[in-house]
Amino acid sequence: MNATRLRLVLLRNAPVALFIVVLAVFGSLSDRFLDAQNFTNILIQASHIAILGIGMTFVLLTAGIDLSVGAVMYLSVALLGIYLADVPPLLAVPAMMAAGALFGLVNAFFIVRLRVAAFIVTLATLFIGRGLALWVTETRMVFYKDHILSLARAEWLGVPWAIWVFAIVFAAAWLVLNHTPFGRQVYAVGENPDAAAKAGINVPLVLTAVYAVSGACAGIAGFVSITQVGAAASSFAMEKEFAAVAAAVLGGVSLFGGRGGVAGTVFGAVLIQTVQNGLVIVNADPYIYPLVTSSIIFLAVFVDSQRSRILERLGRRRIRIEERPV
């Protein structure tokens, strides 16, 4: 029994241990890796995936999935580049969020009202979103003006602009999920939608809201990403939806709803980016980046599934008490 307990403790802390191992390995291979500037870089590079993942977390918590977020990112930057090119960022970002949220509402309409599986709805709107974006850009590369590109280097109080956005989104999402009635209802709906409906929670409203949140986050992520990339090709943000899911899952968010949180997702996004950054710094063969990243995600999911199996076994009702009770 004690061995089981020990294994549980180890498994629960495995992602953090993994992070420490990653830091130690790259730290010993390169002295540039552990300096503050590099960590700032990691945070900047991780910011758009983290923001995307935060939105995805809302959806995953309700046992849904949003595969359209990459397309929404592209669509929102396309709108920015074509229609909002001269608008100051303070107005452009809300506009992009609104566009993303609107897109999310369309997803929600099909998922909530017509009761089509989220996977297939957002798969379809992924195509549609990319199509719309290509239409807006007339399939050309979109370039951005200086007032947007300059944000890549902009700082406030010595902290880069992208990190501020990242931090604000994270803080807002954390507050909403943990300290508002809506946030707790998101968890309730994900745990058991029938029970939530019986308890009087407006389940359709909660579900609609999470897809809108996911869309809005994709809008912000698009903006943050474009300040770093500088131009949007037709492959912009391709397959970012998988990166967002991976970050969330790495951070302990369950695909079956109700478990996990945005802090975990941010941790997951940063961990993935740390590994990528470390591989660059130690001059690893660029072709092995995806191999290392996917192995780490695999490992994290493996650990998590072993942990829940042990927990399930321990949770089984015992009829006789023969050893010390659990």
């Binding site: 017509l114 297939i120 709805v121």
Partner: peptide, 26 residues
């Protein structure tokens, strides 16, 4: 038709099929 229409229409078709299936099930 341009690439974008192909994308968008494909998406609509998948969505339509899924809606039909949902209606049918219900």
């Amino acid at each position: 038709l341009s690439l974008f229409s192909v994308f968008a229409i494909k998406g609509c078709v998948i969505l339509l099929a899924a809606v039909i299936d949902a209606v049918r099930t219900r």
